[in-house]
């Protein structure tokens, strides 16, 4: 399987994502510039964390207009997997590929820690390797991870099983402890925690690797 890791000016988790795929998962990932306009050769897209365009205006607000985003939308519309982690999640909501917004953490602190997450929905292409309600350990590192959406949207997320991960201990004020959601079709996942930083035991855990293996399971079955 061939993934594109999108590198924006200010991305800083792009190489973590690249090595998670190439070394830990054993699949192929290319580093692709945000100026690129063609992703047709890829089976999936990974939008990494960082501070794209310096988080100017709002996190993800400028990245949304990068040339590559049209190609990302095209790939998402084709039903291929699109994963946005941390700033990648912020970009996906600003681009309208996922509902809601990410606000400042209620504590006003940047939080860097390991977060226990519950796998609320294990029937997605990103979570089929976990068991339902399994609690996994994945790092978080963000200042604006406080997920917000209005009540009607929240109800839709629940009705359509789009809430995939929740925090066991809410670190940032997210509504309904939301840590990660998919789009309605289930092929676009945005999450604040960093699965690519939990792919080897030397990093502190391998729970994140199961997410990438789940994508492979789905594509190969």
């Amino acid at each position: 399987m061939k993934f594109a890791v999108i590198s924006f000016p200010g991305s800083n988790c792009d190489w973590d994502m690249y090595y998670a795929i190439n070394d830990a998962l054993g699949e192929e990932a290319d580093m692709v510039s945000s100026e690129s306009t063609d992703l047709d050769q890829y089976d999936g897209v990974l939008i990494p964390g960082g501070f794209s365009y310096g988080d100017y205006l709002r996190s993800g607000a400028i990245a949304r207009f990068a040339p590559v985003m049209k190609a990302v939308k095209k790939l998402a519309d084709a039903g291929k997997p699109v994963l946005g982690v941390c700033n990648g999640f912020q970009i996906l909501v600003e681009a309208g590929l996922l509902p809601g917004s990410l606000q400042n953490n209620t504590s006003m602190e940047f939080i860097s820690d390991w977060a226990p997450l519950k796998v609320v929905n294990n029937r997605t292409m990103f979570t089929n390797g976990y068991s339902k309600d399994q609690v996994i350990k994945v790092p978080i590192a963000h200042g604006e991870g406080n997920y917000y959406c209005d009540d009607a949207t929240l109800q839709e997320l629940k009705d359509n099983d789009q809430i995939v991960f929740t925090y066991e201990e809410n670190p940032n004020g997210s509504c309904d402890n939301i840590a990660g959601i998919t789009n309605r079709a289930g092929n676009v996942l945005g999450m604040m925690p960093h699965p690519e930083r939990a792919v080897e035991s030397i990093l502190g855990g391998t729970d994140g690797l199961t997410l990438f293996k789940s994508i492979l399971n789905q594509v190969r079955s």
Partner: peptide, 8 residues
Amino acid sequence: DLLVNQNM
């Protein structure tokens, strides 16, 4: 289009 995130 850009300056405001109308969600929040």
